[in-house]
Design a protein around this nucleic acid. Sequence first.
DNA 1: CATACTGGTTTCCTAAAGGAAAGCAGATCA
DNA 2: TGATCTGCTTTCCTTTAGGAAACCAGTATG
Lengths: 121, 121
Amino acid sequence: MTENHHQPLEGKECHKHLLSVRDALDVLNGKWKIPIIIALSFGNYRFKELHRAIGITPKMLSKELKDLEMHELVVRNVYSTNPVSIEYSLTPYAATLRQVIESLDKWGEQHRARVMKKTTA
Amino acid sequence: MTENHHQPLEGKECHKHLLSVRDALDVLNGKWKIPIIIALSFGNYRFKELHRAIGITPKMLSKELKDLEMHELVVRNVYSTNPVSIEYSLTPYAATLRQVIESLDKWGEQHRARVMKKTTA
DNA sequence: CATACTGGTTTCCTAAAGGAAAGCAGATCA
DNA sequence: TGATCTGCTTTCCTTTAGGAAACCAGTATG
């Protein structure tokens, strides 16, 4: 804490990390991608189910699902039932996000608790 | 993967997680908060240093630093040198984000590698 | 035949994110 | 006395995110 003054910060290992998180955030940006992935981690669900459970508008849901498909995190499954039913599911690749989502979840939970305590005090 | 069809998804543990990540994302939203925290994890830095190292505009940097201060993740230190110098540093609370940032960093790095491999192939 | 469900799309709108550039006060340096 | 650095702020602008509501085709179901 005291006198933690610095090397120049330019041209350092720092930039490698900045680049990595930028790449990650380019995929996970916005309000909805992580919530959608979380919901689908509980099972495969249909469009309207996701819409209702997450509280996302159909327009955004449609767009975000396409983005997630593009990044190979989600798959759209069409079943030839009658009538056709459609389900979204996570790809195996989405499982690589587990640590990200778990730590975010955990942090959010404790942060909420911390904020509650402060505002109540 | 096959037949992972679902319980209703409503009123379940899922919502707890949705709530937590929403709380986390409310604090860490946008393109810049995490990059700023990463930079400051390498030491305390001044406004223009951050501006140059991260490639963020002064307007955004100013705004994001205020947000981060508000959430008690960053502190603005004014030193009575002559002339006054100002440094930003992380609070101890910011350390609780370590897992979040590390996993995001790691995921971004491997994701970049994966994408590179695909586009080259 | 009417109603309702699914899986979306479309249109309209507002607000927020974010960049570019200029400016500004205070101090220092030549 | 200019020029230059710092730590910002201000203005102007474009893009994106996101919500609300309506709509639509296809398939039921009553």
